[in-house]
Simulated scan of single mutants.
Amino acid sequence: MGMIVNIVSILVGLVALPVALVGLVPFFGIANYLAIPIAVVGAAIGMLSGHRTGRNFNLFVIIVAVVRLFLGGGLL
């Protein structure tokens, strides 16, 4: 059961990653406001499994999106 939950978490992260990558392009930083909640859901799902891969992948996506928003002045 834990492996399936981990795979679902990774799949959610794979949905959030392209959104965050689009958010790296100038004038498309607002996409990160969509990528962060998706990745948070993926990280929460990843916490339910015994494996760390899905959670860590989603945390990486969250960090990339938050750093981009911070550097662009959209956060804080």
Score class of each variant (00 low, 15 high):
L14E: 14
G74K: 09
A35K: 08
F57Q: 05
L34D: 04
H51K: 13
V12R: 02
L17I: 12
A16T: 02
L24M: 08
I36L: 08
A39R: 05
I45F: 08
N58A: 02
R55N: 15
N56R: 14
L71R: 08
G73L: 02
L75D: 11
A39T: 08
S9P: 00
L75I: 15
M47F: 11
L71N: 09
L34S: 13
L71V: 05
F57R: 00
S9M: 08
R52H: 09
V22K: 14
L59P: 00
V61R: 00
V64W: 00
L11V: 15
L17P: 04
A39F: 07
L21W: 05
G42E: 05
L71M: 04
N58D: 06
G2N: 03
L17Y: 06
V66T: 15
I62T: 04
I63T: 11
V61H: 03
N6T: 14
L75C: 11
L14K: 00
I62P: 03
A31H: 06
G72R: 14
V22F: 14
G54R: 00
G29Y: 03
S49C: 09
A20F: 05
L11R: 02
T53C: 08
L76W: 13
V5R: 07
V67W: 03
N56A: 07
V5D: 13
A35W: 12
V5T: 15
N32H: 08
F27H: 14
S49F: 06
L48M: 11
A43D: 14
V19W: 01
G46K: 03
G46R: 01
R68V: 13
P26M: 01
V64F: 06
G42Y: 12
V66H: 00
V67G: 14
I10P: 01
F60W: 06
S9T: 03
A35I: 07
V67M: 07
A20E: 12
R68H: 15
G13D: 02
M1I: 02
R52V: 08
G73F: 04
I38F: 10
I10G: 01
V64R: 08
V15T: 13
I62V: 14
I62Q: 14
M1N: 08
N6Q: 13
S49H: 02
N58F: 09
G74R: 07
A16Q: 04
I63K: 00
G23D: 14
F27M: 06
I36H: 09
T53Y: 12
N6D: 05
F28K: 02
F27C: 06
N56Q: 14
V22R: 03
A44T: 09
I38M: 11
Y33N: 11
R55L: 06
I30D: 13
N58L: 04
V40N: 01
F27K: 07
P37N: 07
F60R: 00
G73R: 03
F27D: 10
I62A: 08
V12A: 02
R52Q: 15
R52M: 10
H51Y: 15
R68P: 00
G50R: 10
H51Q: 10
L11A: 12
R68C: 12
G13C: 02
G50M: 06
P37I: 09
L59A: 03
N32D: 04
I10E: 05
G72D: 06
R52A: 15
N6S: 04
L11Q: 04
M47C: 09
G54K: 00
T53S: 15
R68Q: 13
I38T: 03
V41F: 14
N58C: 11
V64H: 00
